[in-house]
């Protein structure tokens, strides 16, 4: 490859006879028509550089936000895990408390007895079906016995203590009135 710039001008075209005056028609190029000289457009540079800066800044802020969010997510997730654990522990406790063994035992400790004798009140005519008899511990169909229907989730201390009746503040217990006070048909709305 030859660098055109380094080649002497004489070597271009046919060698010119020595001493021959320069051809007339080769004249120096005229000066460019005087156009108004272009000033460097600083505004373009400013826009480009400014744009890049803004993008970089936005990117920076965005990733700061994201990583901040990541830490927040991470801490919230661990909080959620802790809460789920607490929830589970409490649910476990609750379901064990609501097991029939626990309920019956506590009811009995509070002095409640189950009445095996069922009595129905028929609403249509107010008739009492069955013979009402008060419940008594001796006639209770079953007595709770943890040993017979065990539940190892229950701790013995979960049974409440029987309440001690407070003689001074409790109202004098009136003798129960065995009669059924209502006479005649049950009241019912007269709407039609």
């Amino acid at each position: 490859m030859t660098n055109l710039a380094t080649v002497p001008i004489e070597r271009l075209g046919a060698p010119a006879p020595a001493g021959e005056p320069r051809r007339r028609w080769l004249s120096p190029a005229p000066d460019r028509v005087a156009r108004p000289r272009q000033r460097p457009r600083i505004v373009y540079a400013a826009v480009a550089i400014g744009g890049i800066a803004i993008i970089a800044l936005a990117q920076l802020l965005l990733s700061i936000g994201l990583s901040d969010g990541a830490y927040q997510i991470s801490s919230l997730q661990s909080e959620q895990k802790d809460l789920a654990r607490t929830n589970q522990a409490l649910t476990e406790q609750l379901t064990a408390f609501s097991s029939p063994q626990n309920l019956v035992q506590n009811a009995q400790a509070l002095g409640m007895v189950s009445n095996g004798n069922t009595v129905y009140l028929r609403l249509s005519d107010g008739a009492v079906l069955g013979s009402p008899t008060p419940a008594s511990a001796a006639n209770a169909p079953i007595a709770a016995n943890q040993a017979l229907v065990p539940n190892s989730l229950l701790q013995p201390e979960q049974v409440v203590a029987a309440p001690v009746p407070d003689a001074s503040s409790a109202p004098q217990a009136a003798a129960p009135d065995p009669t059924v006070p209502w006479q005649g048909a049950l009241p019912s709305p007269q709407t039609h």
Partner: peptide, 8 residues
């Protein structure tokens, strides 16, 4: 596994 009602 947990069996809230025990042997019921």
């Amino acid at each position: 596994r947990s069996y809230p009602d025990g042997s019921v």
